Computed example of a mutant assay.
Amino acid sequence: MSQAERIHVDHSVTKRLGNWTSADTFEIKARGGGVVVDLRSPGIPAEVEVRVEMQRAMVKLLVPEDATVDQWDLRWSGKGKVKDGQAPAEPGLRRIRLVGTAADSEIRVHRGGVAMVSAMMSREYLDDLRRARKEGRLPVIDDPTRNPFAAPRRQASA
Results as ranks from 00 to 15, higher is better:
Arg154Phe: 03
Leu62Met: 00
Leu74Ser: 04
Gly78Ile: 06
Gln86Met: 11
Thr25Met: 12
Glu135Asp: 11
Arg154Asn: 09
Thr25Ser: 13
Val52Phe: 01
Thr25Glu: 11
Val50Asp: 08
Lys81His: 11
Ser22Phe: 14
Arg95Asp: 14
Tyr125Ala: 05
Leu39Met: 10
Gln86Trp: 13
Gln55Lys: 15
Pro139Ala: 07
Arg153Gly: 01
Arg51Thr: 09
Ile107Thr: 04
Leu74Glu: 04
Gln55Val: 14
Asp84Thr: 01
Asp10Phe: 14
Ile141Trp: 02
Asp127Pro: 14
Gly136Ala: 08
Leu138Tyr: 03
Thr25Cys: 12
Val63Thr: 02
Gln55Cys: 14
Pro88Arg: 01
Gln71Ile: 10
Asp142Val: 07
Ala89Cys: 08
Met120Ile: 12
Gln71Ala: 12
Arg31Tyr: 08
Leu62Asp: 02
Gly18Ser: 00
Val37Glu: 10
Pro152Arg: 03
Asp66Leu: 00
Asp127Leu: 15
Tyr125Lys: 02
Trp20Pro: 06
His8Val: 15
Leu129Gln: 06
Ser41His: 11
Val63Lys: 06
Thr21His: 04
Pro152Met: 03
Arg153Glu: 04
Glu135Thr: 12
Met116Trp: 08
Arg95Thr: 10
Asn19Gln: 09
Ala119Tyr: 02
Arg108Ser: 11
Ser122Ala: 06
Gly32Asp: 09
Asp38Phe: 09
Gly92Leu: 01
Val69Met: 05
Gly34Thr: 02
Glu27Trp: 10
Asp84Ser: 02
Lys83Cys: 02
Val69Gln: 00
Ile107Glu: 03
Val69Tyr: 04
Val37Ile: 10
Ala151Gln: 13
His8Arg: 15
Glu106Met: 14
Asp142Asn: 05
Asp127His: 14
Ala30Lys: 00
Ala151Glu: 11
Ile7Ser: 04
Glu106Gly: 12
